[in-house]
């Protein structure tokens, strides 16, 4: 066992897992985290806590993770390279283990230009692949980067992201291979809408045998409205939404778009389950946490397995 987390145990047992996501509030109110946590509890196997997502200041990931633990959920702490140097990262990782956090996600992070403090200086001391290597070294060799011994037991189940739709497309599986080589345990992908392109990506991943070396969770996000679909397709890097998906939302007619979005999502989740190499789903409901129970039920993923 790497950290003995719920997520790790389920994946190792071969269960098809579903992870959720929770964005901490833009303030110190623990109740916001607790309320969102209550909606996700028992409906997903672990919950990603974002780290100043979109470079916008929010409650720290580590603190929100602790609140989740206290509420009886299992968090996955996201950590971006944008805001911390290696010293701060390792310190926070010790703190995370001390607080009972067992999963983490290594990310480069959105550039601060997209957030609410575009004038900030970024860090990017190390990149996401080096971060994976750093955490693995800490866990498996009990050493920090400078090779000083770690006092006590550091454990962590190490995750990272992958965008199958970014360019250059042919290079993406190779970048994933690099993350595997650096020591990643699981991968969560960017939101998938273009299923054909994702299948092509997974075929390459399977041909390279990467799915045997790490667990790949396919990322999905419900389309709440046609406006959101068009906005995401136009403004979020690496998101491709096929026209027929947007047409389905449009044809659903007024008042039925959100329901159709959920229907599309559930169909996607079923399809993803059957793609070779996909070990689970990462459901990013983005401020739709209250609809997660309904989505999970409709998609046929309830009840969740227990460890």
């Amino acid at each position: 066992m790497k950290s003995g987390s719920n997520l790790e145990r389920l994946l190792e047992r071969g269960e098809f897992v579903v992870t959720g996501e929770l964005g901490p509030p833009k303030g110190p109110d623990a109740n916001v985290v607790k309320e969102k946590a209550a909606m996700l509890k028992d409906h997903v196997d672990a919950v990603n806590i974002t780290d100043n997502q979109s470079a916008t200041v929010r409650m720290s990931s580590i603190a929100a993770c602790k609140i989740l633990i206290d509420e009886g959920l299992e968090p996955t702490m996201q950590m971006v390279a944008r805001d911390r140097n290696r010293i701060a990262m390792m310190a926070d990782l010790f703190g995370a283990t001390a607080l009972g956090i067992k999963n983490m996600l290594c990310l480069s992070g959105d550039h601060q230009i997209f957030g609410n403090h575009p004038e900030a200086k970024n860090v990017f001391d190390i990149d996401s692949i080096q971060m994976i290597h750093m955490v693995k070294t800490m866990r498996d060799e009990h050493k920090v980067i400078c090779e000083d011994e770690i006092e006590g037991e550091f454990t962590m189940y190490i995750g990272a992201a992958c965008n199958p739709f970014a360019d250059p497309a042919w290079y993406r599986p190779h970048r994933l291979a690099k993350k595997v080589e650096a020591g990643v345990d699981f991968i969560q992908t960017q939101c998938i809408y273009d299923m054909n392109r994702f299948r092509a990506f997974m075929k390459q991943v399977v041909d390279m045998g990467l799915h045997e070396k790490c667990k790949i969770l396919a990322g999905v996000t419900p389309l709440k409205s046609i406006g959101m679909a068009r906005y995401m397709a136009a403004n979020v890097s690496g998101i491709i939404i096929p026209d027929d998906m947007i047409n389905r939302l449009r044809d659903a007619g007024k008042g039925n778009v959100a329901a159709e979005g959920i229907k599309i999502l559930c169909e996607q989740m079923q399809e993803l389950k059957d793609i070779e190499g996909v070990a689970g789903i990462h459901l990013m409901a983005i401020e739709w946490e209250h609809r997660v129970p309904e989505i999970m039920k409709m998609a046929g993923f309830l009840p969740r397995p227990t460890v």
Partner: peptide, 29 residues
């Protein structure tokens, strides 16, 4: 690279351009 990445392009590389500025080439591309 806007993030000074040393191990390849981030997920924001699209059509050879950087997500930070669409007029800027993605260095890794």
């Amino acid at each position: 690279c806007a993030k000074s990445l040393l191990n390849g392009p981030c997920g924001g590389s699209f059509n050879g351009k950087c997500e930070v500025n669409k007029d800027t080439d993605c260095a890794w591309h």
